[in-house]
Design a protein around this nucleic acid. Structure first.
Length: 276
DNA sequence: GCTTACCTGTCG
DNA sequence: CGACAGGTAAGC
């Protein structure tokens, strides 16, 4: 999906477009993506509520309303696009959330993995799985905190750990591989085997990669679009992800393996597997 | 840990 | 046709 940078770009793009706007009655074309409350109840209780401010935690987008929180998760192929000139063409439009005045938010998702929730307050976070999230890698996790979290999971391999949203949140497959490459760390290293210097380097690499991703408007490998339907450009800056067979800067050939059940790209020379 | 499942599409 | 795709939950 959209990982942290893509969701953040959507959040930033959406904020000036929808702040203060009042929802009208939703139109639901595929009820399965409305996770809570029931689609019927959502249609009944959303109208009249106003957007206060869009926020983000990990890969979740949270629209804080004057009453309640409208939460989105885009998973792999979800899109959340704002439109004011009628319906943007697309075969996989599942929910249309009109504002009074004619503009609307359009939620579409080819693979139907994504979803949305209307929560009345933070006590309902568990309904959306929001209670399980670890510290957000951009907003919450500091370097010392991150390093000490790694120390609590010495036996875990570092890539699966970074992908675990309960450990820290926001990283997905692309930005994890890019971060590990920048830090020069093999994805299968045990967290406990990282030196203090390596752990600090990893933290700073993650932050830098996420910020670069945001600055580029996110990564559009295929489906991702921002709040206005535009593509990102970080795909042009990826050092290893999706580049198996190409040359690394060091001259070695970028490899693809499988770690944690995910396609994993790395430079076998820059990212040496640690002993043990 | 791993595999499978969810769903639709693209690529070789 | 099979392999794979930005994510995650569930079941060994």
């Amino acid at each position: 999906m959209p990982e942290l940078p893509e969701v953040e770009v959507i959040r930033r793009g959406l904020a000036p477009l929808i702040r203060g706007k009042e929802f009208d009655r939703p139109r639901i074309y595929f009820p399965g993506v409305v996770r809570h409350p029931s689609p019927e109840k959502l249609c009944r209780i959303l109208p009249g509520r106003r957007v206060r401010e869009p926020a983000r935690k990990g890969k979740y987008l949270l629209l804080h309303l004057d009453r309640g929180i409208l939460v989105f998760h885009l998973r792999m192929t979800g899109r959340l696009v704002y439109g004011s000139g009628g319906l943007p063409a697309g075969r996989h439009l599942h929910v249309e959330l009109p504002f009074t005045g004619g503009s609307a938010l359009y939620f579409s998702d080819m693979r139907k993995f994504g979803g949305l929730w209307l929560l009345e307050n933070e006590s309902e976070y568990p309904l959306a799985g929001l209670h399980r999230l670890g510290l957000d890698m951009l907003e919450e996790a500091g370097e010392a905190q991150f390093v000490s979290l790694l120390r609590e999971r010495p036996r875990s391999r570092v890539k699966p750990l970074l992908l675990d949203q309960r450990f820290v949140c926001g990283l997905g497959n692309i930005y994890t591989d890019e971060s590990l490459f920048r830090a020069g760390i093999h994805p299968c290293r045990a967290a406990g085997s990282l030196s203090a210097a390596e752990a600090g380097r990893l933290y700073r690499a993650i932050r830098a990669v996420l910020e670069d991703g945001i600055d580029c408007g996110g990564t559009t490998s295929r489906d991702y679009r921002d709040a206005r339907g535009e593509r990102g450009s970080f795909q042009d800056r990826l050092a290893v992800y999706g580049r198996a067979g190409e040359k690394c800067r060091c001259g070695a050939t970028i490899a693809r393996t499988v770690v944690a059940g995910r396609g994993t790209y790395l430079c076998p020379r820059c990212q040496v597997r640690g002993l043990k």
